[in-house]
Every structure is written in C-alpha cells, then in structure tokens.
Nucleic acid binder design. Structure first.
Lengths: 343, 343
DNA sequence: GGGTGGGGATCGGGGAGCAAG
DNA sequence: ACTTGCTCCCCGATCCCCACC
C-alpha cells in the first residue's frame, strides 16, 4: 500500500476485472454496453475503470474489430481560409462524436500524391475518408481508388460513388449577381476561380444563369487562380473596359487584387465600379472600402460533414443528403448603384 | 488459378511468406531490416510484398511494439495563415518520414479543452505531441499534464519540460524597427498582438529593445488581438497623434485595419505614416499600398519541427535545438522616409 | 432464465529458442 | 559462421460456447 508495484505499466482489462472482482468477460460487457449486466455489477466495474484510469487499447480493439474509431481527413491544396476553416470545424465535430481524425494535408493535388495519402489513411484503418478539395480532379482520382470505406467529399459537384456535402455555391453566386442587378448594374463582369475547381464552376454558373435570365450579356469571364495576384492581373484588364460598372469576383482574395488594379487605373470603388466577393474572410471587413461579399458558414458545414459521415457509417445505402446551406450576403461599402445608369 | 479466392481480404504476413516460399519469420526479418537475410531471399520477399500490395497492419504492430508511428498534432486557436501553414507543412514533413498524424484542432485554448485533446491523442498511442499555439497558457497547461511522450511546442518562449522550435520573432521585429529607423523615423509606435501570445511578446520586446538602444522613446504599445478590427481600432487612436510617423504592426491582418483607419483619418501610407507588418500573408502584396512586412518561412519550420520530433524520439536526453530561422524583410510600398524629419 | 465466469480462438504481427541445412 | 524454418508465446482486446447458480 505504500508504493504501487505497477510502475509505468498501464492497466489492462484483467487488472480492471481483478479490482472489480469480476471476470474480464464482464468488464468487456460493460465496456461494450452489452445487456445482461446487473446495475450493481456495472457500477463496480465502472468504478474500477475510473480508479485505474483504464482506457481500452485502441490498437488491440482495432485489431480484432477492424474498426478504429478514426476518420481520415485529406486536405489538398493551399490552406486558404475556406479549407482551413472546414478542417478545423470538422475536427471539432469529430472529437465531439468521439472520433479521432488522422490527417493528411498536401499542397499538390496530383493523382499520385492523393493516392499516397489515401493509402496511408487506409493503412490506419480509418472508417471513412473526408476529402477537402475544391479541385474536381482531386475528388475524381480519390473516388476512382476503390477504397473500401465511405468517401465523403466536401464538394459542390458530383454525386456518384461518394457522399457529398457542400455549401450552395450556385445560389450564393446568384444572390450576389441579383443584388448587383437590383442596384442597377447591367455590365457585370466575372472573375472566376480556376475552372478545375468545382466551387469556381458553380459560382460561374450562377453568375451566367442570372445574367441570361435577366436578358443581360455575360461577357466571357476571366479565369483566376484564387490569388490576389490574379485578381490584380484581370482587374487591370477589366479597368480598361469603360462600360463595365460591376464585378462579381469569385473570392475575397482576388477582390483585393481587383481593388488594387482598379485604384491603380484611377477607377474608384464603389463610385466607378462595384465589387462583390465571396467567402467573407476576416480581412474583408477592412478592405478599403470594406468589401461586400457572400459569407459562408463553415462551422455548420463542419457539423453537416460529420453528420454525413455518421450516417454513411450507420447505413451504407441511403446517404441522407443534408441540404446545402446558402451563403449570406454581407453588404458593406464596395457596392453602390452605377454612377450613370444606362440611358 | 482462374479466380482469386481471397475476396476483399487484405494480404497478411503469411500470404507473403507463402508466395515468397519462405517462413513468416523471414518476412518479418525483411520488414524490420534485420541482418542475416541473404540478398536473394530478401529480393524474393520484397517482390512478393509488392505483388500482393502487402502493408503490415499498424494496429497489430502497435499492439506488440507499443509504438504507433503516429504523431499527435494540436492546433489551438483560430486557423490563421500562420498556424494553418505550420500544420500543413508539418503534416507533409511527417508523411515524408512515414509517420501518421492524428490531429486535434480547436478554437478555444482553455485548460479543459486542451486536456481533453491531449487525452484523446494519448489514447491513440501517439509517440509525441506537437503543439501549435501562440498562447503561452495553452503551452503551459499541456506541459503540466505529464503526458509520457515528448512534447514539441512551436513556440517562441519557454524551454523547460518540452522541446521547442520556432521562428525568431525577436530578431524579425528588430529588423523591422531598425529599417524604420534607418529610413529616418523616430516616433515609431507599435500595435502588438495579445500579450498572452508568446510571439506577440517577442515582437514587442524586439521593438522596445531597438528603440531603447537607439535612444528613442517607445510610447506604450497598443495591445491588439491579431484581427483587422483591432488594427482599425488602434489605428484610429494612433491617427490622432500628429508626431507619429511610423507603425510597426505585429501582423499583416492588423496592418490592414491600420490602413483603413489611417485613410479614414486622411493620413496617407506611406506619405504620412509608414507601416510594417509581420507574416507576409498572400494578401499583403495587394494591400493598397502593398505592405512592407516580415516574411516567415513556415515550410522550413515544418521540416525543423519534424526533425526535432525525430530527435526527441531517438534520444530522450538532448534535444538538438534547431537554430530559429530569422524572418525576412519584404520591402514593398508602405514604408518611406518621414515627410518632415525632426528638426 | 437472467447474470456471470471460465476457457479459448482470433486479429496480425514481433520475437525468442532451437534445430537444421 | 550464416541463413532459414518451426514452434510457441505475447500484445490487449472481442466474442463465442458452455457451464453454473
């Protein structure tokens, strides 16, 4: 009683059984919440568990049950505000559901890299794989891999072969463009994200559809790469178009580049040109002028993703698709009616 | 021979042994790179492994070796550019070293949350825990937890009880302030990060020391919270000080808020006030004007962190401290000599 | 017949001891 | 002296069968 004999050795199920005065069998029954255990017995076992700070070995458990209570998370691409937020909130949701998350993040999204990441995750016995990648190819290449566990992609397009959860990029884009039209704009241009990105495609589609529905001419969009630099480049080109009075930019970072280009060209925002972005990054509120943009609720997305994972784990058949949430228009000071509405 | 009987079953060590015509013992010897295996035999085994796409079960291995080849990563706080980049690059470095990463990220950094994260990771049998948290308390509370595995903190202060790796915040700050002085500024103010953050403290200390060394008066710094909003708030106050000609801002996001406040007050950058930020986020280049700032090399930091982890794993005694890398001054257009140097 | 215990197989490897080529 | 194979136990659980009260 003076000193514990058991040095650094951690307790196992037999230690618990001995302390509780039961068999290891009964401890197992308690652990796995099986019926046919008298409440009093269960209590004794639980106390022994607490007293010994006993935690079942996940390795041993995984070995025999072939289930690891671990989820794989792949994040491919730059850790921009969106992906980073998704990863964070999904991680929190997973922890709440008492799942561990094994993560593989990488800059490159080529098939070989993705494949390597998937194999590493599978090796860990993950029960499902969550994929954060705006790139369509990234999703396809993982999807083609026959992984043996559910794949849940945070993606705004595609549907066969994997579960999907997303925010409604298309509707978000529509809302942005409709607002510009409501303000009186007619010449509304678009700087899109890379067309390899599904989100970029959806936002582009939203812009194009609204323009068409309203009988407006949608000039060809510029295809950016999400970076401020590309926003700057195309903003410079755009600034030369005297008719253009508004730009719908596919994300906030590019909007910043557009600001830069516009002001370099002597065209004021929103006096000469209105700008709407997408994402509502923390910086957007303090752009000069503060940026009107579409806010995305990544926290809810994280929870929705986890819910979809759990559903997929419970039941291999019907993925109860969560309705994509629609981004919210945050109107700040980068939008205004055009200076001289068309005659 | 016509159809494989083994359906979805994955190969195990005995399958490999059979195919290679050796015993499982020999396969094990090859796997663990033990001596006393004839090259020809080794080759046959390796081919069998490749052919069957055999991968040793980590669970089984972990069970018997008590080593999981998994690292725990805790990221506490908002997923800002810095932390998100660190996580990404560390993850890549870990994968290169064939380690899996189990991740726990959370917004809140209180002791209870941190403790929960640590316990979850420990349960996973992680071999070491890497902690990304600028908050001093976060590091302390984890460090006090007696976790039984090495703790590697990406932190710019503290040293006892855990391994530490960092970028040299202090030198970075010194370089920034020295540059402002070189340009002729004397009234150099500072907007710091939250003093709970070690990085913020180091940057503050760098500013203060240089000011003192140069015989300049360091007015009390404003303590921000990293957000553009706080930069805006203090920028507004700062703008009222007519003597002030330069601000060293502890990060780029707050610099944006400062820009906003300054322009609202009618003071131009860099004409009236020079601004230097910290981090070099992708947006910084396209602020108006493009921001002069201190660039941090997170990719190298990720590799340094992994190297420190491996060293700590090899040898419990001497952590071969990696020399912190010094941030690099990226001079853009937010800095210039003061309009009217002091008489 | 509900609650328990005993015994043992099993998961997929690591590794010891020993014999044999 | 090397290389290899065999046999058997171990890690820490899950779970099945079968008593036993």
């Amino acid at each position: 009683m003076s000193t514990d004999d058991e040095k650094a050795r951690v307790a196992n199920i037999f230690d618990v059984a001995r302390l509780a005065g039961v068999s290891h069998q009964t401890v197992s029954r308690v652990l796995n919440e099986l019926p046919n255990v008298r409440p009093a017995t269960r209590l004794r076992v639980e106390q022994a568990i607490k007293q010994l700070r006993y935690v079942p070995s996940p390795a041993a458990r995984a070995l025999v049950t072939r289930r690891s209570r671990t989820l794989g998370l792949i994040s491919a691409g730059r850790p921009d505000y969106g992906p980073a937020s998704m990863a964070l909130y999904f991680n929190e949701a997973a922890r709440e559901a008492r799942y561990a998350v094994s993560m593989a993040s990488m800059l490159k999204t080529d098939a070989a890299t993705m494949r390597g990441a998937v194999e590493m995750l599978l090796r860990q016995n993950v029960e499902a794989i969550v994929l954060i990648a705006t790139d369509r190819d990234a999703v396809e290449s993982v999807n083609g891999l026959e992984l043996g566990v559910p794949l849940i992609a945070i993606a705004s397009q595609g549907n066969v072969g994997f579960h999907r959860v997303s925010l409604d990029q298309y509707q978000g884009a529509r809302i942005a463009v409709e607002r510009l039209i409501e303000l009186g704009h007619r010449e509304i241009r678009h700087i899109s994200g890379p067309m390899a990105s599904m989100d970029a495609m959806e936002r582009h589609r939203g812009w194009r559809d609204v323009m068409a529905e309203q009988g407006l001419v949608a000039q060809e969009a510029f295809e950016g790469d999400w970076t401020p630099a590309s926003g700057y480049r195309f903003g410079t080109e755009l600034a030369r178009d005297a008719d253009m009075t508004a730009v719908f930019v596919a994300n906030d970072q590019m909007s910043l580049g557009v600001y830069h280009a516009l002001s370099a060209a002597g065209r004021g925002v929103p006096g000469d040109v209105s700008v709407i972005g997408f994402d509502d990054i923390p910086e957007a509120e303090h752009f000069a002028p503060p940026l009107t943009t579409m806010r995305q609720d990544f926290e809810s997305l994280g929870r929705d993703t986890m819910a979809t994972v759990l559903a997929a784990l419970r039941d291999d058949e019907s993925p109860p698709a969560v309705a994509p949430r629609v981004p919210e228009l945050i109107e700040r000071e980068s939008t205004a009616p055009p200076r001289s509405p068309r005659p």
